[in-house]
Design a protein around this nucleic acid. Structure first.
Length: 289
DNA sequence: AACACCCCCTGTCGGC
DNA sequence: TGCCGACAGGGGGTGT
């Protein structure tokens, strides 16, 4: 489910419950998610204070006071539920275990934070913070699309010479990190660019960006920013950490809208679905070139 | 090197 | 109603 806007929304939901708090008790309810949990996972967290909850691309990072970082990835179906402190109710008793609740964090401030993940494509790791940027997961990771660096020039440089379709290039986390299937489809539609166009065509021969490269960089930031403002997208029953729903899905122009009229003014096209590198791409063949 | 493809796992939905 | 295949927001590994 979660692309950058959803993960950032989760981060903001976890922050008040976890940042500055200590793990009072940790329940690990199975041996593995996508990967095995780190050795002595619960014991290594218990008693540790979280200095900050941050995010890199689609990863949530909890910086611990012993120099380690708890790395959390939500995969396709991971979510966190925060049960806030209720006076008079001992917080260890507050959270009721539901199907696919795999980890429960009991925080010193009183909140209970539960990780639920039906498909178990998510994972949690503990790694030393000092060398995190050299870790296999982060070493080759691309730029944050909402950071200062992403503009037409960078996009053109990243894509120069690439024969891969724009769809694949934008999903490549080693170039731009944080986009997923939804926001790539939405961004390409807004930029009127075909998902099948070779990524290298956004750079001129001398490597300078085309106007389309500038436009694409710009709409990516717009789309992600708007999605963030809407609290992300809630597909199926996915919820934010506080239980509320994001509502950006109501603003989808192409994603999961096969057969619908293209929303571009005066276009008259119909949204199509094709498969690219094994995933659905939604786009308008008329106004996306 | 740069792609395309398959897989991990569970739930849901549409078609028959 | 029930069964079955297709598909789902991610990404790592393998093979060409």
């Amino acid at each position: 489910m979660p692309e950058l806007p959803e993960v950032e929304t989760v981060r903001r939901g976890l922050e008040p419950a976890m940042a500055g708090q200590t793990f009072e008790k940790v329940e690990q309810r199975r041996a593995d998610l996508r990967f095995p949990f780190p050795a002595d996972f619960a014991a290594r967290l218990t008693g540790r204070r979280i200095e900050a909850i941050t995010r890199r691309a689609k990863y949530l990072l909890a910086d611990l006071d012993d120099g380690e970082t708890l790395i959390m990835h939500l995969g396709m179906s991971g979510s966190f539920r925060v049960d806030a402190d209720t006076p008079g109710v001992f917080h260890h008793d507050r959270s009721r275990i539901a199907a696919h609740d795999h980890v429960v964090f009991h925080m010193s401030g009183g909140a209970t934070v539960t990780y639920n993940d039906p498909r178990r494509f998510g994972f949690m790791l503990l790694e030393p913070r000092a060398t995190l940027s050299e870790h296999k997961l982060f070493r080759d990771m691309g730029v944050e699309p909402l950071g200062n660096q992403l503009d037409g020039d960078l996009l053109a440089r990243l894509f120069a010479g690439k024969a891969a379709p724009l769809k694949a290039a934008l999903l490549d986390q080693s170039l731009v990190a944080g986009l997923g299937n939804i926001y790539v489809c939405e961004s390409l539609h807004r930029a009127h660019l075909s998902p099948r166009r070779a990524a290298g065509t956004l750079a001129r021969k001398d490597g300078a960006p085309t106007e389309r490269a500038r436009l694409l960089a710009s709409v990516i930031r717009d789309v992600l920013g708007e999605a963030l403002e809407a609290g992300g997208s809630s597909l199926r029953d996915h919820r934010q950490a506080d239980g509320s729903l994001g509502y950006f899905q109501h603003q989808f122009r192409v994603y999961d809208r096969e057969g619908a009229p293209c929303p571009t003014a005066g276009c008259g096209g119909v949204i199509k679905r094709v498969v690219q590198s094994g995933r659905s791409t939604f786009f308008c063949g008329e106004c996306q070139r």
